[in-house]
Nucleic acid binder design. Sequence first.
RNA 1: AAGGUAAAUUGAGUAGUCGCUCCAGUUUUUGGAGAGGAAAGUCCGGACAUUCAGCCUAAUCUUAAUUGGCAAGGGUAGCGGGUAACUCCCGUCUAGAGUAAUCUAAGAGGUGCGAGCAGAGACGCUUCCUUCAGAAAUGAAGAAGCACCCUUUUGGGGUGAGCUCUAAUAGUAAUAUUAGAGGUGAAACGGCAAAAUCCUUACCUGAAUGCAAGGUCGUGUUCUAUUUUUGAAUAAAAUAUAGAAAGUGCCGCGCGAGGUUUUAAGUAAUUAAAACCCAAGAUAAAUGACUACUCACGACAAAAUCCGGCUUAUAGAUUUACCUUGAUA
RNA 2: GCGGCCAUAGUUUAGUGGUAAAACACGGGUUUGUGGUACCUGGGUCUCGGGUUCGAUUCCCGGUGGCCGCC
Length: 114
Amino acid sequence: MLPCENRLIKKKDFTAIYSSGHSFSFKNVIIKVKNNNLKVTRVGIAIGLKFSKKAVKRNKIKRQLREIFRKRIKQIKIGKDIIVMVKKIKAEEFIFSEIEKSVQKVLKEGNLMK
RNA sequence: AAGGUAAAUUGAGUAGUCGCUCCAGUUUUUGGAGAGGAAAGUCCGGACAUUCAGCCUAAUCUUAAUUGGCAAGGGUAGCGGGUAACUCCCGUCUAGAGUAAUCUAAGAGGUGCGAGCAGAGACGCUUCCUUCAGAAAUGAAGAAGCACCCUUUUGGGGUGAGCUCUAAUAGUAAUAUUAGAGGUGAAACGGCAAAAUCCUUACCUGAAUGCAAGGUCGUGUUCUAUUUUUGAAUAAAAUAUAGAAAGUGCCGCGCGAGGUUUUAAGUAAUUAAAACCCAAGAUAAAUGACUACUCACGACAAAAUCCGGCUUAUAGAUUUACCUUGAUA
RNA sequence: GCGGCCAUAGUUUAGUGGUAAAACACGGGUUUGUGGUACCUGGGUCUCGGGUUCGAUUCCCGGUGGCCGCC
């Protein structure tokens, strides 16, 4: 789990990023980014019913994404708001290492790494 | 040994590193706790909260509120019991399925069950009608009284089972068994009731909405209306009250119809007593990742007010009781 | 989370236990030199699985998919 200051919580922030954020994607992972005028990076995760109808699967991918960003939070450029979304995934690709790789690629594409 | 029936338990484990939620301490890292048998579907029933509550009667007065009754609405439907309550559970009767263990059932009465004819009376008979076969005539199918015997032909008679009533015995009761009587003897015996009730009967019951119920504190933003003051000409500022929009803190929120063990009552569901125990409480919402070892190589699936049921999903493992068949003694 | 509703032809709707209906659309045919119009005609697993019933789109139970409301 991420520390409190690195979480993206408020509804306003989400709608702002959805409307005017830059988006990048690789395979099944999509990212939306916007500058905030703070000294921290904030990450929000959006997993809808469309990903899977089962709560277990949705919870699991949320946890895995959080773990990925927790490891990398200090490597990401400061002062960004990020939303992460995931499309439907086949059972074979539903593995931690696979998701980690694709997230890594997306972050490079968006030029977010230090 | 094989096959079957009924039920119960479990739902990978151990060690380490980093990280999350809550609690306690302490003052900057220390200790403890952290998803399920279905947490699910939301199909029922409660607890709890808010709002509403017709008529009569008695209690000094008042009230839905205490007593007794009615109306309206809702529920239940073999019989008996359990429970806070239930469409649940237990026991039992009847009917049906099975060699059996056992399983299934919403199982009161009336009205009703396509149209017409005969008939006292039709859901059944016949005809129309529908479907199938056929070139057609026509035949078959469209729920439902039986078996046997005698006589003999479009019929007549007898016996049994079945039906109704009465009595005795057993049982709290539904009911069962035995005995007797009655008419019927084929067209009136009997079937369907899941329409979850149009009417009746008996019994039970305030109703509606649901924790996004509801309560409370403060902050600050925007808009609208009103009042007062300043001010002056339609504008600005301040104060107070009310409403709306957006966002948010706290309570509700987990010690409870609670668990575990023992004893007692009961065929059982369950109840009573004693001892011990405290076991998630989040709010963009906590359980993940990595490493090592073991095996059966891990199914279905994750709390969101709480509890009792029902229903549906579920890999594998373990246990108990019973039944049938076969073998041996 | 709590509560409610719906599913019938390609689309929009009827259908209160007894042969699945209408409009538009679509396919085929006739008329026409061709097209339109007009006329004739065709196509349903009544969302899926059980149950009650002689008989179910309709009644009951369960699943699947979709939609809506709530400080």
